[in-house]
Design a protein around this nucleic acid. Sequence first.
DNA 1: CGCTTACTGGGAATGATTCTCATGAGCGAT
DNA 2: ATCGCTCATGAGAATCATTCCCAGTAAGCG
Lengths: 136, 136
Amino acid sequence: MAVTRATAQQSIVRDALQAHDGFRSAQDVFADLRAAGHRIGLSTVYRHLQSFAAQGIADVIHDGDGEATYRYCGESHVGEHHHHLVCRHCGRAEEVEGGPVERWAAQTARRFGYVELDHTVELFGVCGNCRSYLPS
Amino acid sequence: MAVTRATAQQSIVRDALQAHDGFRSAQDVFADLRAAGHRIGLSTVYRHLQSFAAQGIADVIHDGDGEATYRYCGESHVGEHHHHLVCRHCGRAEEVEGGPVERWAAQTARRFGYVELDHTVELFGVCGNCRSYLPS
DNA sequence: CGCTTACTGGGAATGATTCTCATGAGCGAT
DNA sequence: ATCGCTCATGAGAATCATTCCCAGTAAGCG
Ligand SMILES: [Mn+2]
Ligand SMILES: [Mn+2]
Ligand SMILES: [Zn+2]
Ligand SMILES: [Zn+2]
């Protein structure tokens, strides 16, 4: 599943991801690359995004419709376990530590006798920037 | 979006959900109902499951593939905000309170200047029952 | 410079969810 | 109990993200 050779396509997919600070879908990235004049296949975009995620270089979040969105992981958090605070308007995301959550999760699982624990924790809101633009 | 009239189909979809203590997909519920000899359409199953969710009667979780799964909410937690500890093997789920998580989420959002906060928190593991059946 | 093997990409296939719309059934009013 | 309006139903088509297939291409190594 991990695509390892250094190809031109791998580069442009990585660059496209890094160019934004928010989560973007494979379809989005594909459309942007094509619009920018790059010759690349949709399958290839999927392959690399998933490969980045498998390597921990990128994070994945499934949006409300279940569509997978990817984000290039910030330098300081590559590989480390962390979560995100995502602006549901512009897609911008902050990487956050989950200290209290991790402890609560472990304790809760123990209480119910569950093992091999894992968890998904994502925070959504409207960022300071978008707040000014938006009504209500 | 909420289907309100008391129809036979609404009943059997509700019953099918209540009959299991784990999260199940619309496709699963549909297959079961058909196998049990009920005449019902797939669209109708989707309609009712989504309606239950909109009313807070059922919970929804998107599984790893982004497929939506539904679960009839336990009596004591209907309407109240809560989370789940789900067995990734048999689908069984425990309803859990997220006290520490709620506080952490609010504090984190404030720190980054985000408003209109919301969050998804789901715990996954292997339940005590399944642990005995499973290898490794 | 070859060779081997992994990568590419167009198109077809898959599978969940949504849409359309003619038919059927709640239920409030009579 | 009946009528009639409105909403619910369901079969099939449509949508859309993601995966599969596979012949052609290029990376990396000697
Ligand atoms: Mn990250
Ligand atoms: Mn619940
Ligand atoms: Zn924003
Ligand atoms: Zn289990």
